[in-house]
Amino acid sequence: MQKALTPGGSKQQSDSFHLKEPSLNLKNNEIILIQKSLVKQQGNKQAVSEELGISRSTLWRKIEEYGL
């Protein structure tokens, strides 16, 4: 059972409080990172590949493979 803070600062027990575990699925995380980088870099694939530490050809392949 977890303890949660109420607005007044006192602790109450809460059975429903659970931290969501991050996905460990490599493909899903790769897609998310590429999408976020594409937005951040405004579609500049050279900048995206540099930010992600992969070659442009690898980035293009992943974009095609994942339908981005």
Rank of each mutant, 00 (worst) to 15 (best):
H18D: 10
R56E: 14
T6N: 13
E51Y: 02
S23Y: 03
K36T: 13
G43K: 01
L24A: 11
H18K: 14
Q13S: 12
L68W: 00
T58L: 07
K3M: 12
K62T: 01
L59F: 02
F17G: 09
E51C: 00
L52Q: 03
D15V: 07
K11E: 15
K36Y: 12
E30C: 10
N44K: 06
E51D: 15
L52T: 01
I54N: 01
N44F: 04
S57N: 14
S49Y: 00
I31C: 14
S49F: 03
Q13L: 13
A47D: 07
Q12L: 13
Q2P: 12
S55D: 06
I32N: 09
L68H: 05
E50D: 11
T58A: 12
K62Y: 03
I31Q: 10
Q12M: 14
W60S: 12
G8S: 15
R56I: 10
S55H: 05
K27N: 11
E64I: 11
I63Q: 03
E50H: 05
K36S: 14
R61Y: 15
Q41P: 01
S23I: 02
H18L: 09
F17Y: 09
K3I: 13
N28P: 01
A4W: 15
P22H: 11
E21M: 13
L26Y: 15
Q2L: 15
E51W: 01
L33I: 02
I34N: 02
S23Q: 03
Q46V: 15
S14K: 13
E51H: 06
K20L: 07
E21Y: 00
D15L: 14
L19Q: 12
M1E: 15
M1R: 12
K40T: 11
G67L: 09
N44C: 09
V39D: 05
S49I: 05
W60R: 08
N28C: 07
L68M: 10
K40C: 05
Q35F: 03
L38N: 02
G53K: 08
V48E: 00
L33H: 04
R56W: 09
W60A: 14
S57Y: 13
K45C: 02
L5S: 11
Q13A: 14
L68A: 07
N28H: 12
G8D: 14
K62A: 05
Y66F: 08
E21C: 11
S37G: 01
K3F: 15
N28G: 09
E21W: 06
E30N: 08
E30Y: 05
I34F: 00
Q2T: 12
L33D: 06
N25K: 04
P22C: 07
E64M: 11
N44L: 07
K20C: 02
